[in-house]
Design a binder for these strands. Structure first.
Lengths: 234, 234, 234, 234
DNA sequence: AATGAATGAGCCTTCATTCAT
DNA sequence: AATGAATGAAGGCTCATTCAT
C-alpha cells in the first residue's frame, strides 16, 4: 500500500524508507499510537525486517529524532553566514529555520510535538537540540550586545530568558505559518514565506532587544531609563 | 497508594480526586501511555468507579482538559484590570498566566504538551483555548496601537503574527521558568517569580511593539523608517 | 425511566415488577447480555433491592422461567375440556397455547429461545416444561388411538416421535403467527388468530394421524397398507 | 489441551481449526458466555492469532454461522434428486437434513439455538437460512399439489403455514433424535437413523397434506368435505 | 423498605516482539 | 535480503455483587 514493492533493496536505502515511514506515522499518530505494523506497511516491508534493521520501536523513534534533529540543525547552520553581523546572522538563521520546518512538517511535528511528550528517553534528546539552538541564539545576543557597545547591563539570566522567549516565538510562528500555508492553495504566493516570517520575528524581537541593550526597560506607566545610558544605542 | 484511603466519599468529591489523579498521570505519561489502572490507584479508588463517574478514558481526558482550560482562562481573566491601559492589561495578564502555570504545572503540561498531540477530539479543544488567548492578545495590541495614536500602519496579518509570537514566547518562558523552579530548592527565593517573568516578557515584546507602531522596521543593516512618523511614539 | 417511581411498595408487588422487567430484558438481550442494572432501572428500583428480593441473577432467571412456565401450562390446561374427545382436547389445548404465546410474547421468548441456550441449570427447567407438554400430547394421541379402536399398531416410540413433531410444529407456528401479527396493524382482523392457527395445526396433523392409526404408511411411490386394516378408520 | 499441538501450520488450515473450536464452544456456552480464550485454547493457538485471522468475536461468529449454514444447505440440496416426484424430494431432503444435523450436532446447535437468540446481526443470517428452507418446502408442497391435480384449493397462506409447521416439526425431531442418540451407546444400532426419522416425518405430514389437497378439513366432531372433491386423491 | 458508594474478576482487543525458514 | 506464523503482556471496559446507611 505504502511504497511500490521493490524487492532486494540495499540496506541503506531500505533504512531510509523505513525512517521516512516512521516519521510520517509518528507525526500523525504519536509515539504510542503509532504501530509497528503501520510503519512496516507504509515502508512496504515486513515487520521482522524493521526489527532487523532498527532493533526496536524505541530505537526507531530515537533514530528518527536524531535524523530530524541533525537535519534541522544543519539547515539552520548552513543558512547563517559565519562572519556577518549578529542581526543578519539571527535573521538568516530564522529564515533557514522557517524554511526547513515548512519543507519538513512531519519531521518538525515529531520533534516539536511528539518527542517532548513521551517520557525521559526522548524528551532528553529533543531538549538537547533545543538547548543547542538556545545556546546559539544566546551567543548571538551576546555578540550583538558587544557590537552595540553594551557592557554587562544585560544579566546572563536576562539574556537566557530572552533567548528562550525568542525561540518560543519562532516555534509558535513556525506552526502558525505552516497552518496558514496548509489552508491556502498549494502554490499560494500570498502565504507567508520563510523570509516574511523571519522578518516578522526580527521586527518583533530585534528592536525590543535593541532598546533593552540601550538600558531602557518597560515599567507600568511608560519606559524608564533603568541605567543611565552607559550603553550606546545603535 | 496515592491519596489517603478514605472510604465512602460523596461523588462530587471523588470526581475531583479522580480528575486530580488524571491530570498528574496524563501529564507524566501522555494520553496513550497513561493507564486507567494507574489513575485509579493514584486516586485511591478502583477502576470501575472511575468508569462509573467519568465514563471512558476519552471522556476523562476531555473533562480534564476542560477543567484545566477553564481554570487557566479564569486565572488570566481575573488577573487583568478591565479598564487599565493596554500595556498594563497585557502585563497583568502575563503575570496571571505565569503564576497559574507555575502553580499548576501538571495542568499546564496536559494542555500545552499532551492535548495538542493526541488527535482531533482533544486538539480542537486546546486549539480553541489558544485561539481565545491569541484573540485576547490581538485585541490588546490593537487597543495599544490606537492608544498610541497609530492609525492602520500595522496590517492585520502583522498583528496576528505578533500575537502568535507573543503567545509562543510566553509559553516558552512558562516552561523555562518551571524547569528552573523544579531544579532549584523548592522554596528558592531566587527563582524567577511570575512578576519577573512577566517583566522579561514585557521588556522583550513591548518595546519592540512600541517601535513597530512608530513605523520603524528592522532591515538588514539597520533600522529604517518604513513610513514617515505618522504614528506618535509614546 | 421504566415504571413511574412509587416508593414504599409492598414486597409482593415489587417482586412482580422486577420479574416483569426481567422477562422483558432477558427476552430482548438474552441471559448473558441482560444486565442487572438494566433490569433494576426498568423495574424502577435500585440494584441492591433486586438482590435483596431475588438473590442473584441466576435465581432471578430461574424464578422468571418458573413463573412463565407455570403461566403457560395453566393457560393450556385451563383451555381444554377434561371430558371431551381427544381431537377436541388437542384442538382447544393448541388454541390455548397459541393464545397465550401471542399474549405473552416476551415470556414465550424467554422460555423458547433464551432458557434453552444457556447451560444446564436453565435448560433442565425448560426441558421439564416441554416434557410435560409432550407427555400431555402423547397421552392425547394414545387416547385418540384407543377411541379410534386402534390397538397397539403405533409403537410407543412412534407415538413419542409424533408428539415431538407436533409440539415442534406448534412452536414454529407460534413464532410465525407472532411475527405475522407484529407486521400487521395492531388491530388487524386478518392476522391469524389463535383459533385459525390451531385449525391449521389440526388440519396439518390430525388427518395424518388419523390415517396412521388406520395403518397406512407413506412409502416412496405411494401409500401402503402397512398392516391389514385391523384398525378401524373413523 | 484441545487439539494436538502442531506448530507452524498454514493459515487456511489454522482457520478451519479455529472455526471448529468456535463451533464447539459457541454451541456449548452460547455467544456471550463463550470466551475467546476458551476458543483459542481449544484450537491449540494463542488468542492473538485468532484475532489476526478472524478479526473479532462477532466476525468469528458470523463466519461460523455462514460456514455451518452453507454446509447444511449443501447437505440438503445434494440429498434431493432434482427430477423426482415431490414426495420423494421432500423425503430425501428430510433424510439429508436429519443425517447432517446428526453428524454435526454442534453446528446445528449454533444455527438453531444460538444464532437466533443473539441480536440482529446474527439472527438475520439464520433467518435467511430458514427462509430459504421454508421456501424450498413451500415450493415442493406447491408442486405436490399440482402433481395431485389439486387446483388452487390451498390458499397461499395455508401452504406457508404448513411449510412452517413442517420445518418446525423437522427441527424438533432433529433435536429429539440427537438427544436420544446421545443417551444411547455411541454405536447404538437402535437409535433412530436419519432414514427412520425422515419416515416418521413423512408419515406425520405427508398423509395429512394429501388429504388436505383432497379438500378435506378437520372440524370438531369429524372430518368435513370442505370443497366437493374437485381434487383427485392419489 | 430502600439506596448511594464501591469493588474483584473477567473479557475483548491490541501491540511489540520473536521464531523458523 | 526477507517473511509468514505465532505469542506474552497489558489495557480499556463491563458486570454481578456487596457494604454501610
Amino acid at each position: 500500500m505504502g511504497a511500490v514493492k521493490s524487492k532486494r533493496v540495499p540496506r541503506a536505502v531500505r533504512e531510509q524508507q523505513m525512517l521516512d515511514a516512521a516519521v510520517l506515522t509518528f507525526a500523525r499518530r504519536g509515539y504510542r499510537a503509532a504501530s509497528m505494523d503501520e510503519i512496516a506497511e507504509l515502508a512496504g516491508v515486513s515487520k521482522p525486517l524493521v526489527y532487523l534493521y532498527l532493533n526496536s520501536k524505541e530505537d526507531l523513534f530515537n533514530t528518527v529524532i536524531r535524523r530530524e534533529s541533525a537535519a534541522l540543525v544543519a539547515a539552520v547552520r548552513s543558512a547563517v553566514e559565519p562572519g556577518a553581523a549578529a542581526d543578519r546572522q539571527l535573521c538568516s538563521g530564522l529564515k533557514g529555520f522557517f524554511a526547513h520546518t515548512a519543507e519538513h512538517p512531519y519531521g518538525w511535528a515529531v520533534l516539536h510535538q511528539q518527542a517532548r511528550t513521551h517520557g525521559e528517553p526522548f524528551a532528553r534528546e529533543v531538549a538537547a537540540l533545543r538547548a543547542e539552538i538556545v545556546a546559539f541564539v544566546t551567543e548571538l545576543l551576546g555578540a550583538a550586545a558587544k557590537e552595540a557597545g553594551c557592557v554587562g547591563e544585560l544579566a546572563e539570566r536576562e539574556v537566557a530568558g530572552l533567548a528562550h522567549a525568542l525561540v518560543g516565538a519562532a516555534e509558535s510562528l513556525a506552526e502558525w505559518a505552516n497552518v496558514r500555508t496548509d489552508e491556502g492553495t498549494s502554490g499560494d504566493p500570498e502565504h507567508p514565506s520563510a523570509k516574511d516570517t523571519a522578518a516578522t520575528m526580527m521586527n518583533f524581537a530585534w528592536m525590543g532587544l535593541n532598546q533593552l541593550m540601550g538600558g531602557e526597560r518597560w515599567a507600568p506607566g511608560g519606559l524608564v531609563d533603568h541605567e543611565s545610558g552607559s550603553c550606546a544605542r545603535r
